[in-house]
Design a protein around this nucleic acid. Structure first.
Lengths: 152, 152
DNA sequence: TGGATATAGATGTATATACATCTATATTTG
DNA sequence: CAAATATAGATGTATATACATCTATATCCA
């Protein structure tokens, strides 16, 4: 669906403003797609993201701050996401030995299993639902970097 | 900042997966930028979006369903966003005359004033913070439509 | 015309987002 | 070394998101 149909509007201030709204809409579209698939595994989008980050370093452990710095949405409240993963026994918390302020997070076997299953499903859905050549994806990545270039 | 730095990761399954994460990250970046500016006007991102939609039809009135269909994030709970706008006297609710099930929303003078001021500020910030030529913005829009083409 | 069904929106619940504050441990520096 | 400052993470609060359910009004149609 074109953005114009999706938000029933054709009055954009500029092509750049339209691109901004288009990015916001597409992000919502991706999230909706993913959330629907993750529901089967009783995982939220953010819980999945945390498990994926932990897996990236496994069997190394990570502290909360390390996880937070790798989150896509930097304003996520990582301790609370971890609370829920701990309740489901997907991770285990221990106080840091070197630095007592840190909380060290360990993926459990159950956590690895769930992540494995969820990843397979989610990757399949992305492959199935997103149609873009590698070349076009690469151009898109460059344009998004360009969009954010004045970031501070 | 490049996506790789932003999420401290270089292991992407594919250029398409990277584009997906890049869209999610850029959407978060845009939202953060906007939220910061809107705070001065005591408006949230979604409250601003609803006011903007109402302004688009003004002085015509809109019902809740009409507003919802124009929201960027379709899963927004419009009645509750309207609750908060009503408390601040930015809008007024009345029961529909033709269809009694509908709630009809009217922008107040105060609502129009706030929106006007917030829009000027927000447009300025977007112009200032986003650097992309019209040509590149147009290409970006085409690629985002392509990305979502299998939408149902 | 009156009971079944559909629609509009309000309301409830769990989790996330955005951000402030608090507590415990580490580090700095006077 | 002790007091001041910094850092890690937990916790609190308002609002949003995602979705289910409930209520009131409208429409359908036998």
């Amino acid at each position: 669906m074109k953005l114009e149909e999706a938000i029933k509007s054709t009055n954009f201030k500029s092509e750049v403003q339209k691109a901004g709204l288009n990015i916001l809409y597409t992000a919502w579209w991706i999230k909706t797609l993913s959330i629907k698939e993750l529901k089967v595994f009783d995982l939220t989008h953010e819980q999945y993201n945390v498990l994926r980050i932990l897996k990236g370093k496994y069997p190394e452990l990570m502290c909360v701050k390390d996880i937070a710095s790798r989150m896509i949405e930097k304003s996520s409240n990582v301790p609370r996401i971890i609370d829920r993963l701990e309740t489901k026994n997907f991770i285990k918390r221990t106080q840091g030995e070197i630095d007592g302020r840190q909380t060290v997070i360990k993926l459990t076997t159950l956590g690895i299993e769930i992540l494995e299953k969820a990843s397979i499903k989610l990757n399949a859905i992305w492959d199935e639902s997103i149609s873009l050549s590698t070349q076009n994806a690469s151009t898109l990545n460059n344009l998004l970097e360009q969009f954010r270039i004045k970031e501070d």
